[in-house]
């Protein structure tokens, strides 16, 4: 079956700058797809061209087999879009916001309570949108994007500016949406978020896609070393250098840090010596992938 989204050589420039500079990718039905990149990378612009909010300078977008530009009223009932957590009617309660969107999409009123429950806002139903916390407002705006039970959901940085706990709560909501069979396209500047949620992720910088694939594959492809640290008291640097597979050993305060490309023999040797106190193993992350691709530290 055809891909849900096919983007080919998309370009959009503002003044002299190319916000999106030749982007090509496709998203399969039911996939959780992430666009990851620092601020200004061109994520929002890419997303908005797919949604049909902006006209590409060149290139093409096919969404559910149709072109989203110009405003395509056949497409609108089939997609759900979360733009920004403030896109609410002023002074209306959470329930009234949903009620209004349910009306706009011609859905049944039963949806209102279903959605409130789905995003866990039942006890905030009577609260005005302005009075919701950041995380609650994000969840409400996601609920609003789901009123029409869309086939494809677009979420633009849904967890931006949330505290870690609220972010994790929201991840559960997003996984749940994807588990219901919906194709989800999400932009984020959080590496861990992309790693944890997405089936595939496109790493974007300066309007271009640098790398695309499942997060685990991208990380593995790096062939980056693993850092193993143990307490200095159980293993000093000199004995660590004697371990099989230890490429490099450093001393950092009270820890001994071993860098290795073959963590298995190192770990079994440590176990043999009963030297596992305070053990920490840190593998490569998407952050290392970004560093590798751009030669600079990732800073959201």
């Amino acid at each position: 079956m055809a891909d849900t989204i096919v983007v080919t050589d998309l370009v959009k420039s503002y003044e002299s700058k190319n916000a999106v500079d030749g982007v090509t990718f496709s998203v399969a039905d039911g996939e959780f797809f992430g666009i990851l990149g620092p601020n200004g990378a061109g994520k929002t612009t890419t997303l908005e061209m797919i949604e049909g909010l902006r006209e590409p300078d060149s290139g093409s977008v096919s969404l559910l087999g149709m072109s989203p530009w110009p405003r395509n009223s056949k497409l609108l009932p089939r997609i759900g879009v979360q733009l920004q957590a403030s896109a609410f009617f002023e002074q209306l309660t959470a329930r009234e916001q949903l009620h209004t969107f349910v009306d706009l999409y011609g859905q049944s009123m039963a949806r209102v309570d279903e959605l409130l429950e789905m995003v866990g806002l039942q006890d905030k139903a009577g609260t005005r949108a302005e009075k919701l916390s950041g995380g609650q407002a994000q969840r409400l705006s996601i609920a609003c994007s789901l009123v029409n039970d869309p086939e494809v959901v677009f979420l633009d940085e849904p967890t931006a500016a949330l505290d870690p706990q609220a972010r994790r709560n929201l991840w559960d909501v997003l996984r749940d949406i994807n588990d219901r069979g919906k194709t989800v396209v999400l932009t984020t500047h959080y590496m861990d978020e992309a790693e944890s949620l997405c089936d595939r992720v496109a790493i974007m910088d300066n309007g271009k896609i640098l790398q695309l694939g499942p997060p685990a594959v991208l990380v593995r492809g790096l062939d980056a070393p693993v850092r193993i640290s143990v307490e200095q008291a159980v293993l000093d640097a000199d004995s660590a250098r004697g371990l099989p597979g230890a490429d490099q050993v450093e001393q950092d305060g009270s820890s001994t840090i071993i860098t290795t490309r073959t963590p298995s023999p190192v770990l079994s040797a440590l176990a043999e010596r009963d030297a596992l106190d305070g053990l920490q193993v840190r593998g490569a992350t998407l952050e290392d992938v970004f560093l590798d691709l751009t030669g600079r530290e990732y800073r959201a």
Binding site: L53, R71, L76, P77, I79, L83, A87, L104
Partner: peptide, 11 residues
Amino acid sequence: KKLLRRLRLAP
């Protein structure tokens, strides 16, 4: 608040 754009994406 981007509500206009949100409405533009509603049918």
